[in-house]
Write a protein that binds this DNA or RNA. Structure first.
Lengths: 133, 133
DNA sequence: TCTAAACTCTATACTAACAACAGAGTCAAG
DNA sequence: CTTGACTCTGTTGTTAGTATAGAGTTTAGA
């Protein structure tokens, strides 16, 4: 099948498929006479796997590792577990950062009511606490 | 003062100051004979303001708007309030997304114990639920 | 006065994961 | 045999810087 059909079947854009191709996550089983990428249907599964991983925000590098690991079915899967563990930690760190950011923004927002002028704006004056901008 | 001193006083890197300069957030009051940027001390405050905004994850575009607004002290500050409001909403959206992501990753992680092989790995098999990769 | 170190300049490439083109070529239906 | 849909490669843009390269400037000490 050509790239357009693969895109439809997996609900990916053609561009992102080409991107994954260039990054080596998938590869065309052949090229047509006119140089079109030809994929076989196993690529649909592979691409769904990639999509699933991306939806979990795994990076292309991490996905490449997973795909490589799946080629060594008899090795221990510690690496996979570790990858997910460290990913969870990263996500939790980002959540914490954002929650603290949210707090700061909320308190900043509370320092001004609507219907003031820029000159009186509590937000602006808080943002420039130590001097005139 | 030259860019190095400004960097020290504000705890910014020289590069990022040049970046803000290029983006029009600050500007050198003059250039030395040898083409070095010369800043006056009001720039310290302006740069601290910018740093503060960046620490709240406001974009350079938003900061530029704030700086422009501060030049019109008698206008209403609605825009500023709205900017912060929408920023809070964005942050909250990102937090929600990440929390759902965290849940998925946790449950994925629970599908595999350490000390299995890749072939038996619950994580990998979950990631490729609908076919072989 | 000379020189070496420290500083600064511009310009470019790099980061992640694509999206959005341009300009060209290919293919299928009518 | 043409037209429209599809595909190709390559380039640029996104964010907010960081990290160079290679050149020029300034300052302190000998």
């Amino acid at each position: 099948m050509k790239i357009g059909e693969l895109a439809k079947r997996t609900d990916c854009t053609v561009q992102s498929i080409r991107h994954y191709d260039k990054e080596g996550l998938i590869s065309a089983s052949a090229r047509s006479e006119g140089n079109f990428r030809l994929y076989d249907k196993s690529t649909v599964d592979r691409l769904m796997f990639i999509k699933h991983c991306r939806s979990l925000d795994l990076s292309i590098i991490e996905i490449r590792q997973l795909l490589q690991l799946s080629d060594s079915p008899d090795e221990r899967c510690d690496e996979i577990n570790r990858m997910i563990d460290s990913h969870v930690i990263e996500v939790e760190q980002r959540i914490n950062d954002l929650q603290s950011l949210r707090k700061q923004l909320k308190s900043l927002r509370n320092s001004c009511s609507d219907k003031r002028t820029v000159k009186q704006c509590g937000i602006l004056s808080n943002l420039s606490r130590h001097g005139n901008i």
